[in-house]
């Protein structure tokens, strides 16, 4: 065991870490926007669009992440005649992927709202849009917080898969260092600990947020 290999390459590994964090932030924001929009389309009972939302959710949730990533990376250039960089494909693929799961969580969040809440809104004279905006969406968002952060943690772990299409995020950078130094045990254990710390940190934030919502759901 000689962890000097980690210190000797710390600058390169730190760049990988920062790319992982950047990817995670982009995908968390993008995926939440996409997922909640799709979830809203599903909830709002817009004819035609609802079926489209269901197809998207079910199709993506039945497809492995790696396949989604390959389809975006290799497939996009055929459709658009414009090649995406590996990083763009990874961010795009992750957003499309995690968006479906977030949409599904939003859907079940909406489902779990007691009917009385919505009926109370209608009885108070709110319009359909107002009921959606003032009651359904805020309650659904608070109720889905644990699930949402579960998705974020999953996504953080899944971001390692970007290394497969050649993104030098944390995992990619570590594998490159390993290809030169061949110290797999030290490098992989350091990598595992880093992901562990990041994941635990992210779930702690989620738990905090969830406690703040207690009694207001």
């Amino acid at each position: 065991m000689n962890y000097a290999v980690v210190w000797d390459n710390w600058r390169f590994l730190a760049e990988g870490l920062s790319l992982t964090l950047q990817t995670a932030v982009l995908v968390i924001v993008g995926g939440s926007i996409l997922g909640i929009s799709i979830g809203l389309v599903h909830t709002a009972h817009l004819p035609g669009l609802k079926q489209l939302a269901v197809v998207y959710i079910e199709l993506i949730r039945g497809t492995p992440l790696l396949v989604v990533l390959f389809l975006v990376y290799f497939g996009f250039s055929f459709l658009a005649g414009h090649r995406l960089s590996a990083y763009q494909a990874a961010v795009g693929g992750f957003v499309v992927f995690i968006g479906a799961y977030i949409a599904e969580d939003f859907r079940s969040g909406v489902h779990s709202i007691p009917r009385g809440q919505i009926e109370a809104g209608v009885a108070a004279g709110l319009s359909r849009v107002q009921v959606l905006r003032l009651i359904v969406v805020p309650l659904a968002l608070r109720r889905m917080t644990p699930a949402l952060f579960g998705q974020f943690v999953r996504l953080l772990k899944f971001s390692s898969v970007a290394s497969v299409i050649g993104v030098t995020e944390l995992t990619g950078a570590t594998l490159l260092v390993n290809a030169r130094e061949f110290r797999p045990i030290e490098l992989l254990s350091a990598l595992a600990v880093t992901y562990f710390v990041l994941c635990v940190g992210l779930s702690l934030i989620g738990r905090r947020l969830n406690e703040r919502f207690k009694g207001r759901i």
Binding site: F158, V161, P184, L188, Y195, V200
Partner: peptide, 21 residues
């Protein structure tokens, strides 16, 4: 539970394949 699920599956794979090569 915490150690196994907070480490990406890809790294689990590399651990057995590369780490214990």
């Amino acid at each position: 539970v915490e150690a196994a699920r907070d480490v990406p599956l890809l790294i689990h794979m590399y651990f057995w394949y590369l780490g214990l090569s």
